[in-house]
Amino acid sequence: MEYNNQNEEVISNEIQDPSTEKVLTKKDLNKMVWRSLLLQSSFNYERMQGGGWTYSLIPGLKKIHTNDHDLSNALQDHMQFFNTHPFLITFVQGVILAMEENKEKRETIRGIKVALMGPLGGIGDALFWLTLLPITGGIAASLSAEGNVAGPIIFLVAFNLVHFFLRFFLMHYGYGMGTRAITVLKEGTKKVSRAASIVGMMVVGALVASYINLSLNWTIQAGEIPVDIQGEVIDAIMPGLLPLLYTMLCYWLLKKGRSPLTLIGMTIVLGLAGSILGVM
């Protein structure tokens, strides 16, 4: 999140045309929602989404800054490092466009932009990757697994209803919010991510119990009596015990800093070992 000092000097705070007319229409905002789909189009490890972020704002910036000097300043400023959650980007767009229209100082706009992108990243992860995707994907997969064509259809419709509703809603909401957005977000962050986490954790608990296929196919002779380890011992302790334990093991290894690739390797070795020994 460091800014290039050279650029810092080039981007002046001076505004040549300080008129604060409201020039953006609802149509302009909607146009920029569509442009926001290309947020990661210039993704790179130096500025991340900086280029796509600037691209998404261009129609608005052109309309607001009719003065070439001001437009150049704004473009150079937005071209700096930027990274937030790709689904919640329109909220930042709305807030920033309201501020641009109000001809706020460049450093104020930059400050708000940077302050917004971090927390939104966290909320977006909780809402989309950890809640919406596992829920829609999980439900759809259970349908598809039975050969039901409704699986992928329900997935695409449900996912994109939420996705595009949020894109358009957040643009207009953010724009209306303007500079007040920061305080509102700070109050909202905790409650939104808490609610998302509760639903998400319940769903993950359910997925662990239903979708991990890990059981033993192993019968031992206890004296004369054959004992089915999975059916008579493990399930008697707790159904789904092995999937739960294996998930906890993976979680623990991740916490220890092991990479997901190591875990994939470990799982393949376990599967092969279980297969060779004939117990899985």
């Binding site: 997925l207 890990l214 993976c250 997901p260 994939i264 799982t267 599967g271 092969l272 297969s275």
Partner: peptide
Amino acid sequence: VAGGIMPAI
């Protein structure tokens, strides 16, 4: 077998 366990990761 490994494929069945992999969702755990």
